[in-house]
Design a protein around this nucleic acid. Structure first.
Length: 215
DNA sequence: AACGCTATCAACCGCTCTCGC
DNA sequence: AGCGAGAGCGGTTGATAGCGT
């Protein structure tokens, strides 16, 4: 009950520049992470969650804003194929970009199901809207996921082979700890290897062509 | 000029995870 | 082991700018 009262007293909606300034000062004083304290001490009447979000997506130093470059776009597509909708992980690979930004970018520019709605201009029926919403809700039918796994295995195997040519040893994430791929974290630590491989070899592009028919 | 519709993105919500007790 | 609080994440919503008719 009290929680609800507190919640309703909290301020919501868009942040004003002066609020941003206060929040920035508070984070500098109390440190990033103590959102409950920051919420309380700032006097902003914003929830800790709201403060955290504003800081993370807008006020944090080194935030890059504006259009995504072709490289960033390409990387988002590749990482999304590997990781799915794990926006924070994808954003972690894009310096200065936030998970929210990557997510929004994907939903507006790269998610075909959604952008199809945009191309159908002046479709007045409500079905157009509900259809696109339903499509968005179910991004990965079970069938697609298994195809994706197969495709990813093919791609990764070729990367691993190539890595071995450089006298490097790299375990397949697909068999690590008998964990299924895309199911748990063991894959994540070797992501750097894959990104490096893409940077140094042409396999990334070739692999991308290979993976396309499965998706 | 007015209206309707779409695209965009900041912010919120609800759930899960983690950690301390 | 169980519980509660706080943090983090992904999905969704809502405001609004911009464009077409």
């Amino acid at each position: 009950m009290k929680d609800k009262e507190v919640k309703t007293r909290m301020k919501r909606g868009f942040w004003k520049p002066e609020e941003d300034l206060i929040l920035k000062n508070c984070v500098e004083t109390h440190g990033e992470g103590n959102w409950a304290t920051i919420s309380e001490k700032s006097g902003l009447m914003r929830s800790g969650k709201s403060c955290r979000l504003r800081w993370k997506n807008y006020l944090r130093p080194n935030i890059k804003r504006g259009m995504m470059s072709e490289d960033e776009k390409d990387l988002i597509i590749r990482l999304h194929k590997l990781l799915g909708n794990r926006w924070s992980l994808i954003a972690g690979r894009l310096p200065g970009r936030t998970d929210n930004e990557v997510k929004n970018f994907w939903n507006t520019h790269l998610n075909n199901k959604r952008s199809c709605r945009g191309k159908k201009k002046h479709v007045k029926s409500k079905e157009a809207n509900t259809q696109s919403t339903q499509g968005k809700m179910q991004e990965y039918p079970a069938e697609t996921v298994s195809n994706q796994e197969v495709a990813t295995k093919t791609v990764l195997d070729s990367w691993i082979e190539e890595m071995q040519d450089f006298n490097c040893s790299l375990l397949s994430p697909l068999t690590m700890n008998n964990m299924p791929f895309l199911e748990d974290e063991p894959f994540i630590p070797i992501l750097d290897d894959i990104v490096l491989l893409e940077a140094f070899t042409s396999t990334g592009k070739e692999a991308w062509n290979e993976i396309q028919p499965f998706l």
